[in-house]
Nucleic acid binder design. Structure first.
Length: 271
DNA sequence: CTATGGACCTGAATGC
DNA sequence: TGCATTCAGGTCCATA
């Protein structure tokens, strides 16, 4: 579930509370996507200095390195002062003097990886090819339009790729394309400046709005304090196949692209 | 180098 | 009720 808004909402929900905390213990469940990259005992005794986000990764700055956390498809974090035994789908926990940060991830597509710096070891590999942050000034409409000209694939695939812009997953790609009036199947290199500019704005607006709304809770996402998101209630197309477009009442259509569902309004998104 | 498809894993919903 | 199939918020990797 977690796309940029959910990851950012999660970050905001525990960053202030955990910053400065001393790691006292580390608990591990079943294996995640990648091994931790160090002995769990290496983390004990380190302090959490800050929590950053890069794309869909959370980066916990520690005294001696950085801990990358990715939520995969079904992951969520919880930061609480309560002590509870690890459940069947709890696969990682940092016990600190301020509370425990626990990763719950049934499908285990998520990951927790330790590296000494952002650009060394596994972190370098995972973060190295990421595109620009969509909510930063680095995301420039002119540059975006030029970059799209180099891609012959469907625009939806380009957005999901994450090597141009990060953070846009299946929900927000569909929503941004709807707002921009562009079909998910449109070839990226056929999108001109004007429409690229619209898409650029749509991406920023949708993501910012979703962060405001606490993200989307489709199944069981919640922030680290257990709060659900509300953006799914105002989604225009995602998950709405067959329902009326909120603007023109045309039934929302769906199709398959790269083994993922795309949703769009055939009338509002003409090409 | 670019584009596509499979792989990873579990649970919920659907269909016969 | 039971069992098989399909689908789900991501993204790495092998293959054309």
């Amino acid at each position: 579930m977690p796309e940029l808004p959910e990851v950012e909402v999660t970050r905001q929900s525990f960053a202030p509370a955990i910053s400065g905390a001393l790691i006292q213990d580390v608990k591990v469940g079943k294996p995640l996507r990648w091994p931790l990259g160090c002995a769990a005992s290496v983390l004990v005794g380190q302090r959490v200095l800050a929590v950053r986000r890069r794309g869909k990764y959370l980066l916990l700055d520690l005294d001696g390195g950085v801990l990358l956390i990715h939520l995969g498809m079904s992951g969520s974090l919880r930061f609480t002062e309560q002590v509870a035994p690890m459940g069947a789908h709890d696969h990682f926990e940092l016990v600190t003097n301020r509370g425990s940060l626990r990763l719950h991830d049934p499908r285990r597509f998520g990951a927790v990886v330790f590296s000494h710096t952002d650009d060394s070891g596994m972190a370098a590999k995972l973060l190295g090819k990421l595109g620009v942050e969509p909510l930063s000034d680095q995301f420039d409409p002119v540059r975006f339009a030029l970059d799209l000209k180099k891609r012959r694939t469907a625009i939806k695939q380009v957005l999901l790729g994450g090597d141009l812009v990060v953070g846009v997953g299946n929900i927000y790609a569909c929503e941004a394309l709807y707002r921009a009036g562009i079909r998910p199947t449109a070839r990226a290199d056929r999108i001109g400046r004007l429409r690229a500019g619209r898409l650029h704005l749509a991406i920023r607006e949708v993501l910012a709005r979703a962060v405001q709304q606490g993200g989307s809770t489709l199944r069981d996402f919640s922030s680290a304090n257990g709060e659900s998101g509300h953006f799914q209630l105002e989604a225009a197309v995602y998950g709405r196949a067959g329902q009326a477009c909120r603007v023109c009442a045309t039934p929302i259509a769906s199709l398959r692209q790269g083994q993922r569902s795309s949703f769009f309004c055939p009338k509002c998104q003409r090409n």
